[in-house]
């Protein structure tokens, strides 16, 4: 493979994988045919056109689906992000119980099982057959009920509900795009590291980690002009954690102990603004 061909292939990565599978070879052949003998770099004009063309295809890829299908995918991603948040919390709780930072009310092993099963379910939603997603989701839901039984029973409703939603949508609808894996990975990584900053060796990370959610939110908001589904998923996350989780905490521990307060209204407003803005954008992007 020549240097030019390798560089052209790198540039073609601006296009999504499904497009490269259809057109990649043909475009590469045209790029190489149009090149001058001895040329080692693609021309500036070709570089610009490939990057812009790739972004344009990525921007319109959700136009291939109906609004309903896009909403199903956004709901799947929203459920996955919320589950990753809960799973990160249970896994880090298990680590902190093991490290004697947290008191051992219940076995850290139970939180670990729930966390690892949940992580496997979310990963399966991207890669595994539908039956595997359903089986893993059922096992995780059982583990969640068991784990929350000792603390706040009502809190188990949220992960169980999200797991059912994820499994049903994964079985009925479209597969989550791999281009969203970065978001899930960054989200999970941030939640794990942020919870572990109570450990002395990781304390220095607490300040830089405070900026990470802002960067992720900024990226999702910017990306909404291209693809509004991750922003819709974030709206689901805000609604689940900011509103539903708070209400379930109040139900579990009593309204006098955990009072939702005015913060709840801020989360409701944020979820409504995010959901309506991304839905408006989604309607404009979808074709049916």
């Amino acid at each position: 493979m020549s240097l030019l061909e390798r560089r052209c292939r790198t540039l073609l990565r601006a296009y999504p994988r499904w497009y490269r599978r259809q057109r990649g070879d043909e475009m590469l052949a045209t790029l190489l045919e149009a090149s001058l003998p001895g040329q080692r770099w693609p021309s500036a004009r070709d570089t610009r056109a490939l990057i812009m063309g790739g972004l344009r295809v990525r921007a319109t890829q959700d136009q291939r689906l109906s609004t309903a299908a896009n909403l199903r995918l956004a709901a799947q991603l929203g459920a996955a992000l919320t589950l990753l948040f809960l799973i990160a919390s249970s896994l880090t709780s298990a680590i902190l119980i093991w490290a004697h930072i947290y008191a051992q009310h219940i076995g850290s092993g139970l939180w670990s099982v729930y966390g690892l099963l949940g992580l496997a379910t979310v990963v399966a939603a991207w890669f595994a057959p539908r039956l595997a997603v359903a089986v893993l989701a059922a096992a995780t839901a059982a583990a969640a009920v068991w784990a929350y039984w000792g603390s706040g029973k009502a809190l188990a409703i949220l992960p169980a509900g999200l797991l059912i939603m994820l499994a049903v949508l994964a079985c009925l609808g479209e597969r989550l795009p791999r281009s969203w894996l970065w978001l899930a990975g960054a989200w999970f990584g941030w939640n794990v590291l942020e919870a572990l900053t109570v450990l002395e060796p990781l304390r220095f990370l607490s300040v830089p980690l405070a900026v990470v959610p802002l960067i992720i939110l900024g990226l999702v908001a910017g990306w909404a002009f291209v693809d509004a589904r991750p922003a819709m998923a974030m709206a689901i996350f805000v609604a689940c954690i900011g509103v539903v989780y708070q209400l379930l905490s109040s139900v579990s521990y009593g309204w006098a102990v955990v009072s939702p307060g005015p913060g709840l209204l801020i989360f409701v407003a944020a979820a409504v603004v995010l959901a309506s803005g991304s839905f408006w954008r989604l309607r404009r992007q979808a074709v049916l």
């Binding site: 043909e26 004009r45 610009r48 056109a49 490939l50 063309g53 790739g54 344009r56």
Partner: peptide, 8 residues
């Protein structure tokens, strides 16, 4: 036409 423009 650049290659990217052609295929778009």
């Amino acid at each position: 036409m650049a290659t990217g423009t052609l295929y778009t």
